[in-house]
Structures are given as C-alpha cells and as structure tokens.
C-alpha cells in the first residue's frame, strides 16, 4: 500500500489520513442504459495488477475527494488530482 500521498491541497500526508472510496475509472451509465451496463457499473470490479485509478478521500485533512493513480504492484504513486479537477478534465 502506498504510504505517502501528496494531497494537492495539504501536501505530503500519511495514508492513514485517507479513506479509499473505490475505482475512479468507472463512468456512470445513462439512466436509460441496459440492466447489464448498470449491473457492471454497480457490482463488477476488476482486481488489476499495475496502474489503477482510485478515489481517495482526505478525511482527516481537507476532506476533498482525490483521484490517485497508483501501481498496485510496486506501490508507486504516479499522480494525485483533485476529484473536481479530474472530472472537469475528463468531461464528466
């Protein structure tokens, strides 16, 4: 587990200050999408080895949702973005 996360608002912080809130690469389907699409979105998760995008919330700090790109194999953290900025950049 990556032990130090560089929060864009608070600086370098230990992982204990954060709470992992799941996969950030999923895109919410349209309300009229098929049951299968919704089932996949709500329940089906991959367990990847390598780079992943995750929502981390800085609960003991700025309480913002962050998108952390990290490697589940090497524990390396590649980037940390504010959730709102990430959503804007990806047109969500």
């Amino acid at each position: 587990m990556a032990s130090l996360i560089t929060c864009p608002h608070c600086g370098v912080r230990p992982k204990e200050e954060f709470s992992i809130r799941g996969d950030a690469s999923l895109v919410r389907p349209a309300p009229t999408a098929s049951d299968e699409a919704w089932h996949d979105y709500v329940y089906v998760r991959a367990n990847p080895r390598g780079r992943t995008l995750e929502h981390w919330q800085h609960v003991a700090g700025c309480r913002r949702f962050l998108v952390v790109e990290r490697d589940t194999f090497t524990h390396e953290v590649h980037s940390v973005t504010d959730g709102a900025v990430f959503a804007r950049e990806n047109g969500r």
Partner: peptide
Amino acid sequence: ANALCGHIA
C-alpha cells in the same frame, strides 16, 4: 493545516 494527531483529526 488539518492533520491527524493520533487518531483524531
């Protein structure tokens, strides 16, 4: 800054 002191924010 907001930080953890022990287990308390």
